[in-house]
Design a protein around this nucleic acid. Structure first.
Lengths: 129, 129
DNA sequence: CTTGACCTTCCAGTGAGTGGAAGCCCTATG
DNA sequence: CATAGGGCTTCCACTCACTGGAAGGTCAAG
């Protein structure tokens, strides 16, 4: 299977798949003409990667998860730890964004948004006191 | 005032201030010895930038906000629009992260996290059906 | 035989800095 | 007066996870 079909099946851009090969996440064989030849297990890996990335796992996390996935003797605690650390990072990020959101909401609410120059948003950024 | 003191006052790393000069956000004068010489208005600008960045505005948003801040004849509607667009992006990002968080929470909850290889997290990533 | 879609590699750029090297400048101390 | 240290300068490379584009090879259809 060529890269275009692999991309369709895995739900990833072809460019991304080439990049994943570059960094050693997948190692598709090559046809005589130099085209990448994806087999079913490559597609599985790519699909796995697409799902893990969609859940926000970093590439390095994905590399580890993929290794664990391939390792039938793995301990599920290893996977769980990675997922839990990622979950903690996500929750921190959500909290940070919620703080920003609340502040911005207040500012936007208080701003008349008309033709006059007076603007609480700029006032706050320039001098929050 | 040298860059170190400016950094302390504005709450930004010196490196970041140099970077902001590089991209034209601030234009401090220079002493005879080549050192940057920050005056009060530079510190104000840097402080403004630090606050806007802390609220998650992009550098380009900051550039626009700074220009509006300096423009006494601005319309507050311009500022409001920028803030509202940013707010919308933040809310989208929060929603995305919340989706990830919910999925991850379920997976982590269902994973025994012991020495056995069976792992719902990997199962889900490999075959979500 | 040509067209057009596909594939290849390689180079450069994104955002917003951060790290580090090499080398000046300034002040304080012995 | 020499030197040690800290701070300042520039410049280059690196981060993360791609993405865009150029230049050129390959393949199937008409």
């Amino acid at each position: 299977m060529n890269i275009g079909d692999a991309a369709t099946k895995a739900g990833l851009p072809a460019k991304t798949i080439r990049y994943y090969e570059d960094i050693g996440l997948v190692k598709p064989a090559r046809d005589a003409n130099g085209y990448r030849a994806f087999v079913q297990s490559d597609i599985h890996k790519l699909t796995f990667l697409a799902r893990a990335r969609a859940l926000g796992f970093s590439i390095e996390d994905c590399r580890d998860l993929l290794a664990l996935w391939e390792d039938s003797s793995r301990a599920s605690s290893d996977v769980r730890r990675i997922a839990q650390e990622h979950l903690a990072r996500i929750e921190t990020k959500i909290a940070d964004l919620e703080d920003m959101r609340d502040t911005l909401k207040t500012l936007v609410r208080d701003c008349a948004g008309d033709d006059r120059p007076d603007c609480p948003i700029l006032n706050r950024l320039g001098d929050p006191a």
